[in-house]
């Protein structure tokens, strides 16, 4: 009988795909796939450390994509949810997918398929929220700067949207929770880490990192936001349903006037 094995990978998406490759290639009986900094060995299983290999990762990626575009994005989105145990679920999902004749015939009444689809949807929702709620502030060195604290690791997902849209301005979006950001320098987007002394949320204190015009525009925007209300139609419940309170910190229109 095949002994069961826990695969350990480096936490990156390519690392995970490599683990999937190794598992398929060596016909390993996988009990779990864990990140190297949080692995716990099971009593009755071996562990094997997987070294990230972009070639192998690519082959898994292409394999899934050839089955279905929808599936590859589900896998990537669900992975970025950082949900505990998602790796094993994804592994099962990919197994099922590979067995299916085409990605289109995936059975949505199957619990794994449904779970991954729902997880991916949640991440997708967070992606859209961030695309909507990022608020740039113009720094004195002409970079449009925003920081976010998303529930999931969505920076890799929103990068394209901002690059396409703001192609003629430098911008930087920083994830405070995960301590890295993406910076666009008018040519391409790169990952950066910063030493932020001061988190520039919608503080009511002005920071001298930003241009003075910046605060004028924030005031105009806040004014504008206030004047869009029609008093006789107010509906606070519907309002918080659309903009959950945990997102208010991003929105300059939600802060008290500077």
């Amino acid at each position: 009988m095949n002994t069961s094995t826990t695969l350990i990978y480096d936490g990156s998406f390519n690392g995970f795909l490599t683990a999937v490759f190794v598992a398929f290639d060596e016909k390993i009986n996988v009990v779990d796939i864990q990140k190297n900094n949080q692995s716990q060995s099971g009593l009755f299983s071996d562990t094997e450390t997987v070294f990230t290999n972009v070639e192998k990762a690519k082959r898994v990626w292409n394999g899934i994509r050839n089955k279905s575009y929808n599936a590859i994005s589900n896998v990537y989105f669900a992975f970025l949810s950082e949900t505990e145990g998602v790796e094993l679920m994804l592994y099962n999902y990919i197994q099922k997918l590979m067995r299916a004749q085409s990605g289109k015939c995936l059975d949505y009444s199957d619990s794994t398929v449904l779970y991954i689809a729902q997880l991916a949807k949640k991440v997708g929702r967070e992606k859209h929220r961030m695309e909507a709620f990022v608020r740039f502030q113009l720094t004195k060195d002409e970079i449009y700067f925003a920081n976010i604290e998303p529930d999931f690791d969505v920076l890799p997902l929103i990068s394209k949207h901002f690059r396409d849209r703001y192609a003629d301005q430098k911008w930087l979006i920083y994830d405070i929770k995960r301590k890295y950001g993406i910076y666009y320098d008018l040519d391409h987007v790169e990952m950066v880490s910063l030493n932020l002394k001061d988190i520039q949320h919608n503080k009511t204190v002005k920071s001298n990192a930003f241009t003075s015009e910046e605060y004028e525009y924030q005031t105009l925007w806040n004014d504008y936001f206030k004047s869009t209300n029609i008093a006789s139609r107010i509906n606070p419940k519907l309002h918080t349903q659309h903009v959950p309170k945990r997102y208010w910190k991003y929105l300059s229109e939600k802060k008290e006037a500077v």
């Binding site: 709620f133 192609a167 301005q169 869009t228 209300n229 659309h242």
Partner: peptide, 25 residues
């Protein structure tokens, strides 16, 4: 945004905020 200018239109549209009566801004 073909010419590296500013902006594009999102096919689905994006609500950047909501008014107090729940309408999209």
């Amino acid at each position: 945004n073909k010419t590296k200018g500013l902006g594009n239109a999102s096919k689905m549209g994006i609500c950047h905020s909501y008014t107090a009566d729940g309408r999209c801004v």
